[in-house]
Write a protein that binds this DNA or RNA. Structure first.
Lengths: 139, 139
DNA sequence: CCATAACCTAGTCTTTTACTCGGGATTATT
DNA sequence: AATAATCCCGAGTAAAAGACTAGGTTATGG
């Protein structure tokens, strides 16, 4: 499985923020209640979202989180990358550090992983939170 | 990461069998030596490959494994599905058992996972071992 | 008969995932 | 000024998955 609960919970939480984009900040407590999960766990996810410039935080009473950019400007890939760290099918095509893999002497399968990653990136990089929003309201 | 070492090792091993398709059976010992990994671990993988009808086994001296079908007839998806069990980005689109997920009451993100899975399946189901073979020799 | 191989079950070690705990800092409201 | 709501942060833990190893049995060619 490519996506863990971090990406699953995190993306759904981001959708809530997207729906409230014009309103005030949304506290984690509210998100946690609606999603039936612990606010403390969400805190960890939002730390990463914030460090990646995807949300803005407001402390104190009446505080909470808001999207740092408009839903049109945030892709699914942005969110998942922040939460999952990497999104490649295989380490050897994850980018980051040029990898290692004993089979540098012509690994026949690498091009499959590259094709796979390209196909995944196409979806992740072109789908925005706004797209999800319109898709959800259409149904 | 979507693919574990099972899929990684297994697909490379299948490529060796594909290269020797017209010859006699290849023992795991040989594959293990070339790939620098343990024959015992490979045995586990080949049990799954065999149970999924992808390889044929020959016991005893001069035994080993052969592809059960031609390289044109075996897709990367076939191999990985046999070894990884499932290849979906998320459990809710894995197929198998119609899942569960508390958020049945209109989960906005599900269509993203469906798009992602479709993009992945496109690559996995259309790329055959023969394709990899020609790609590898071209370079 | 013997060497070579597939077959099989169980067990172990490591890493990752999915959290919880317990505090501290900041801010709006009263 | 006090209080409650909220974000912030590091550590720790329990369960699951991943990556193997160990030690045997069975079949087959020479």
């Amino acid at each position: 499985m490519l996506i863990s609960t971090r990406g699953e919970y995190g993306l759904r939480a981001m959708m809530m923020l997207a729906a409230e984009y014009s309103g005030g900040p949304l506290p984690l407590r509210v998100i946690a209640e609606k999603e039936h999960l612990s606010a403390q766990y969400l805190e960890h996810l939002f730390r990463d979202l914030r460090n990646n410039g995807l949300v803005e935080s407001f402390r104190g009473a009446k505080g909470g989180y808001k999207l740092a950019k408009s839903p049109e400007e945030i892709t699914v890939g942005n969110v998942l990358w922040a939460l999952e760290g990497t999104l490649a099918p295989m380490e050897c095509v994850a980018g980051e550090k040029e990898v290692q893999c004993r089979h540098t002497d012509g690994c026949p399968t690498k091009f499959v992983w590259e094709k796979l990653k390209a196909a995944m990136d196409e979806v992740l990089d072109t789908t925005t939170l706004a797209d999800i929003l319109t898709q959800a309201t259409e149904e």
